[in-house]
């Protein structure tokens, strides 16, 4: 028994100094930012099957700016930050528009992700943001259409539909840390279920929690984190000054210290940072606290739209920037 009492503290003391004598990895690679914004205002022949989302392009432009400025604040050189905007705005639906490399079609997204996958290294950080429609129930994303006439095809096999499997298959090969930010309805379906913990936003019982403990699935540290505007419900836009933003994105921009007038981030560490560290959890915490709409139903929020952000679960939080 005495040996146990001696050995255990010695073992703990030896391992306790891990943070002290291990060399801390410093992220030095390229930051790739891909921002997608689609207004759906260009349906051909006067059709209007897809509601217009005027705030999405503002979301994409301002989020990419805020993230790249935060990367520079955290020490990256501007030449090591690559921003790609994939946008659809206005009513134009000509082939010339569709062929523009900055048009937010599924093909252009696939090509962009393949290009990043070809060059990214383990030291890189890739951030992909999407502001647009999500299909009710399935959460599938709707990229900009490429039809010059006729109603837009949004069937399951449509070339504009992006399923979680499709997107995960193209992001996973990218080396380094990856963050996918989705501001769309039902986007919670893109968050992969953790092998080690259960979300209690969805209905899980205590038997599920213990079932997961004894399951054969293995947890791996997530190099790919998903951060979404809503769980299994709608997400919304709000008026913000002279333009619209997604409710989630406007809170995210605030978390990054974004000033809508100057188009610059505030001095110092962003409001969401904790101890000079901006992690996915610290952004999540800030958004839940400051989002314009409540995150869950309660007696005090009857009649209000509820929008609950979601995040990749499990034991580890990913550090985005340190200052």
């Amino acid at each position: 028994m005495r040996r146990v009492f001696l050995l255990l503290p010695i073992l703990i003391l030896l391992m306790a100094s891990c943070e002290l004598y291990y060399e801390e990895p410093v992220q030095t690679g390229t930051v790739h930012i891909v921002s997608i914004g689609i207004t759906y205002e260009n349906e051909p022949d006067g059709h209007d099957y897809l509601g217009d989302l005027p705030g999405t392009v503002f979301d994409a432009r301002e989020l990419s700016d805020a993230l790249s400025q935060q990367a520079m604040r955290a020490g990256w050189d501007s030449t090591d930050i690559e921003v790609t905007l994939l946008l659809q705005e206005g009513t134009d639906h000509t082939q010339k528009t569709f062929d523009d490399l900055g048009y937010a079609s599924r093909n252009h997204l696939e090509n962009t992700l393949a290009t990043i996958a070809g060059v990214a290294t383990a030291d890189d950080l890739t951030i992909i943001t999407y502001s647009g429609h999500g299909i009710e129930g399935t959460g599938e994303l709707l990229m900009a259409h490429t039809q010059t006439s006729g109603p837009v095809d949004i069937s399951e096999d449509s070339p504009i539909v992006v399923t979680p499997e499709w997107l995960h298959a193209r992001i996973s090969p990218i080396k380094g840390k990856k963050l996918l930010i989705l501001d769309s309805c039902y986007s919670g379906v893109f968050v992969p279920e953790s092998p080690s913990s259960s979300s209690w936003v969805y209905d899980n019982g205590i038997d599920d929690w213990y079932g997961k403990y004894f399951s054969d699935e293995e947890y791996q540290i997530p190099s790919f984190v998903v951060f979404t505007a809503s769980a299994d419900s709608d997400s919304y836009e709000i008026q913000f000054g002279d333009h619209n933003h997604g409710v989630f994105t406007s809170a995210l921009l605030a978390a990054l210290g974004w000033n809508h007038t100057t188009k610059k981030i505030a001095n110092g560490a962003p409001p969401a940072a904790q101890n000079e560290l901006l992690s996915i959890d610290s952004l999540y915490k800030y958004i839940k606290k400051h989002q314009a709409f409540p995150v869950r139903w309660s007696l005090f929020t009857i009649g209000e739209n509820v929008q609950h952000p979601m995040i990749t679960g499990g034991a580890m939080d990913m550090v985005l920037f340190s200052y």
Binding site: F5, S199, W200, W209, Y213, Y284, D317
Partner: peptide, 29 residues
């Protein structure tokens, strides 16, 4: 005296709405 303790618990992450089950054992003087 020496004590020994065994039990099980449910754990709620502070920042995210996820929960997991675990077991714990404790001993000491």
């Amino acid at each position: 005296s020496l004590f020994i303790q065994g039990g099980s618990e449910v754990n709620f992450y502070k920042q995210i709405e996820e929960v997991f089950a675990s077991f714990s054992f404790k001993l000491g003087p």
